[in-house]
Amino acid sequence: MANKQQKTPEQRRYQQRVNEKMPRSKTLSQCIRAFISGGIICSIGQLVHDIGEKWLMLDEKGVAAFTAIIMVFLGASLTGLGVYDKIGSWSGAGSIVPITGFANSIVSPAMEFKREGFVTGTAAKMFVIAGPVLVYGIGSSVIVGLIYALLRA
């Protein structure tokens, strides 16, 4: 990954100096914010889950799908309204890691590239960030399934 060329001593010295003096992220306060915001989003998810289970009387798979769909809807609408990026700049990973963040990563490029057309812009760019998630997620689930099938045989 890294630069394949040998670093000169000057380069090594400079990079070391940059690393020493660089302003740092405030990791602790960022983690606290991520904890709070992530916790809130998951609690909302729990509420949606309970609504699906107790009010709509969905079965287990139905509840899971219902929760995912509603959370994606919430993430997508907040992105459309221009709120999710503001939540994100406060929350950091707290709003990236939940599935609402996945929805944000789909809607934001879809909106942004509208001007390049609905086929080559919106539709093509929609999965620029979420695509890899699907590739690796679905890919690894197939591998897991195949291993499981092998072990069973």
């Binding site: 660089m22 302003p23 740092r24 992220s25 960022q30 992105t79 459309g80 221009g82 999710y84 990026d85 503001k86 939540i87 994100g88 700049s89 929350s91 950091g92 709003s95 990236i96 963040g101 944000n104 990563s105 809607v107 934001s108 490029p109 909106m111 942004e112 590239f113 960030i129």
Partner: peptide, 10 residues
């Protein structure tokens, strides 16, 4: 994209 949530680095 502009509407993507996240933090900038310092």
């Amino acid at each position: 994209p502009l509407e993507m949530g996240g933090q900038t680095t310092p």
